[in-house]
Computed example of a mutant assay.
Amino acid sequence: MLPLITRDELAAALEDGTVVVVDTMPAAYYEKEHLPGARNIPGFPYEQAAEFTDEYAPRVLPDKSAPVVVYCANVPCRNSGLVGARLLELGYPDVRKYREGIEDWVAAGLPTESSTPTEER
């Protein structure tokens, strides 16, 4: 079980630049909307979450010592738990989960970004 981070804690960490945020939704969802500055490691389909994490993590999270927060759509979504657990296995020591996900972030009126498929994830 990953340690959790609240929306307010995450917003403060993003503002301070003290955390790397990872959106674990499939690429099309990430491109449509994600938290500011978030990087993408897809955690769906579930059976490919570890494979995607192994492939993407060295590129999108080159500093293993950086604090990382993973999130997906909402509380029932499993993507962030799967990707976060795999990051721990890969040697990332500081991984937390924003359990409520982007749905909670948007409902609170906080800013999001979008990107095109050609942008770096």
Rank of each mutant, 00 (worst) to 15 (best):
G17W: 11
G17I: 13
L82Q: 01
Q48Y: 12
E120H: 05
L87R: 06
A27W: 07
G17N: 14
E31L: 05
R121G: 09
R39A: 02
L90R: 09
I41K: 05
V106S: 03
T112I: 15
A49Q: 08
R59F: 13
G91R: 08
L61R: 07
V22P: 11
E113M: 13
T6W: 10
R86W: 05
I102H: 14
V60P: 09
L10Y: 03
L90F: 03
Y30V: 07
G17P: 13
G43T: 10
Y98G: 06
A85M: 09
G109C: 14
V83P: 04
L88C: 03
V68P: 11
P111M: 06
M25Q: 15
R78Y: 02
P36R: 11
L2I: 03
P93R: 08
D63K: 02
P3Q: 05
N74R: 15
I5Y: 10
Y92N: 08
V22G: 11
N40E: 06
G91Y: 08
A13L: 08
T116S: 10
A50V: 06
E103H: 15
R59I: 14
V106N: 04
K32R: 06
K32T: 00
E47I: 01
E9L: 10
T24M: 13
V95T: 05
P62N: 00
S80L: 08
Y98L: 04
L2G: 04
L14T: 07
V21A: 11
G101M: 04
E47T: 01
P42H: 03
V95W: 06
D23W: 04
V95F: 08
R78A: 12
G17H: 14
V70K: 01
A85S: 12
L88H: 00
A107Y: 08
R96C: 06
K64A: 13
S115E: 12
A50G: 00
A38F: 05
G81Y: 12
K32M: 00
G43W: 11
E15D: 09
D104I: 04
M1E: 12
L4Q: 05
V60W: 08
P67F: 02
D8T: 13
P111G: 08
L82G: 00
T53S: 09
A12E: 12
A66L: 06
E103M: 15
A49F: 09
A108W: 07
I5C: 14
E119C: 14
Y98H: 02
T24P: 10
T53E: 03
G17R: 14
M25N: 14
T118Y: 11
P42G: 01
D63T: 02
L87G: 07
G37P: 12
R59C: 05
V20N: 03
H34G: 09
D54I: 04
T116A: 11
L110E: 11
A38L: 09
D63S: 01
F44E: 10
A12Q: 12
P58Q: 09
E15G: 02
Y98T: 03
Y92S: 10
D63H: 02
V19Y: 01
S80D: 05
I102T: 14
M1R: 12
A50Y: 01
P42A: 04
A27P: 08
I41H: 06
A11I: 10
G17V: 14
L35E: 01
V75A: 15
E47W: 01
A49W: 06
